[in-house]
């Protein structure tokens, strides 16, 4: 057997997609166990609050299912588990809190080693033509729409207090995650902020964001709502700079 064939067969045996017939069974069992054990441990470490919420046994069943379905490919094991929230969403369609907790766990882990950036403060909010201004966010910013109170559950688990029962939100909201200095941050968002952030991250102008706010709140409230939004984004350290569109 040449090296190419040996490594392909060995890798398949490690993953469990092929019987270890070509190799010593006892030795291959060690490699297969190491492989699965390390990936399950990684999922546990990254999704610590999800594990607390589901319980160790249930979490491990889902983690094992994920390992069966997803072979890692990145050089960094930190990238493993990117599709774990999606798998949990399919596994618990009536319990969005589970996948949303997993997303929040994963996002906070991802931003930990994300690129550094110096956010602007309010003194930098100067422009001649605000209508055409676009917002450039610090690179760690990401968000997800939320159907449940997963953010409140995550906070309670982090503070080791009694978490609230999971409930489905009457109006879908969201959570944004970013890093400020060296510390990962997150904040809940109402639906209109989700829409605005979604739009802004895709390069919409301030004028387009104001139009959206007008549809949400009525033309008379646009200035106040836009001001509130901008103050929150700048105050939280989300904005890297303004760009003339």
């Amino acid at each position: 057997m040449n090296l190419d064939e040996l490594q392909r067969r060995f890798a398949a045996s490690v993953c469990g997609t092929r019987e270890p017939g070509d190799f010593d069974t006892r030795g291959m069992r060690v490699y297969a166990n190491n492989y699965r054990g390390q990936l399950v441990t990684t999922l546990r470490d990254i999704h610590a609050k999800t594990r607390l919420w589901l319980g160790d046994e249930t979490f491990d069943i889902q983690a094992e299912r994920y390992v069966d379905a997803h072979a890692p490919s990145s050089w960094t094991i930190d990238a493993y588990g990117h599709a774990f929230p999606d798998m949990l969403e399919a596994a618990y369609p009536k319990d969005p809190d589970v996948s949303e907790l997993a997303w929040l766990d994963g996002a906070l882990h991802q931003v930990f080693g994300g690129a550094d950036a110096q956010a602007i403060d309010a003194t930098a909010l100067v422009a001649d033509d605000w209508e055409r201004i676009e917002f450039v966010f610090v690179p760690s910013v990401r968000f997800r729409r939320m159907r449940s109170n997963a953010v409140a559950i995550w906070k309670a688990l982090a503070e080791e207090t009694m978490p609230p029962a999971s409930v489905e939100l009457k109006a879908m909201g969201g959570v944004r995650v970013w890093r400020r200095g060296l510390s990962p941050q997150f904040a809940s968002m109402e639906a209109h902020e989700c829409d605005c952030l979604d739009l802004a991250l895709t390069g919409a102008t301030f004028g387009e964001i104001c139009q959206l706010l007008g549809r949400w709140h009525g033309p008379g409230s646009v200035a106040a709502e836009a001001g509130t939004l901008l103050r929150a984004w700048v105050g939280d350290g989300l904005l890297l700079r303004l760009r003339q569109g």
Binding site: D4, Q7, R8, A11, V14, C15, Y31, N34, Y35, Q38, L39, A71, P72, S73, S74, W75, I77, Y80
Partner: peptide, 8 residues
């Protein structure tokens, strides 16, 4: 191999 990384 083939882009797979066992991390072992």
């Amino acid at each position: 191999v083939d882009g797979f990384n066992s991390h072992d």
